[in-house]
Design a protein around this nucleic acid. Structure first.
Lengths: 125, 125
DNA sequence: CTGTATCCTGTAGGATACTG
DNA sequence: CAGTATCCTACAGGATACAG
């Protein structure tokens, strides 16, 4: 299923860029990175901070980000356990971009909402 | 389930910013917008251009983007049917940001790949 | 406290067939 | 050509229980 497109583009199914997108174009990933952008956080802090995230998804997201080298995990050998998460330098370079996305969303919120209402009005009949 | 956080943040489950993220933090949306960034495309062009997208997902994504006012749909009343898609002005403002994300992905591809290999080596044993 | 393991359900999304 | 409709399955992701 590996066809040969002339363009070295994002369009190829096996394009590695898409694999990266899988990670960062994900709701929880964006939010977690956003939450860590202000500094180190403990696991439980993140859980409290992010409303509506399940334990499973939080852990899963953190592992994925750690694997991609965006987040660093530091375990203190104490009891009870203490684990801190922070952005790596690589992660920090991404932060600015994601913030820009979030800012875009905030700015154009009304515009989008209006578009949706308009669209739905045309459809519902 | 609407708790009252002090921060007017992305963390609230009902935050409208999250709703916007649902749309644009999506793999196919990013790719479709990317594909339209160079100009108007017909439905079938998009389908050919984007490797690995199913008819269902393409239509679904286009509808979602149209609803949010990011994409415009123009139907020519001819037979056989001809439908063209293009970015709205609003959609174009987003293009630059998404391109930046894609560019980031390209630039840091190696770094991420290396991090993954490193991570997996530590785990597999 | 910071997880992992298991179960269970809804649904995203592919394949296929059909229509204006 | 540009879709909609239907079926079907894999897997995302919540709830719960348990462990180090």
């Amino acid at each position: 299923m590996v066809r040969n497109f002339p363009e070295p583009e994002v369009f190829k199914a096996d394009c590695p860029t898409q694999q990266v997108l899988e990670t960062i174009a994900d709701k929880w990933s964006v939010i977690v990175i956003y939450a860590l952008s202000k500094g180190t956080r403990r696991y439980s802090e993140l859980q409290r901070l992010i409303g509506g995230v399940s334990q499973k998804m939080l852990t899963q997201t953190l592992r994925k980000l750690e694997r991609d080298g965006l987040v660093e995990r530091h375990v203190y050998p104490v009891v009870p356990p203490k684990v801190e998460y922070s952005l790596t330098p690589l992660g920090k370079t991404l932060t600015e971009l994601l913030k820009a996305i979030c800012k875009w969303a905030e700015i154009h919120l009304d515009e989008i909402e209006a578009a949706r209402v308009h669209y739905d009005e045309r459809i519902d009949r």
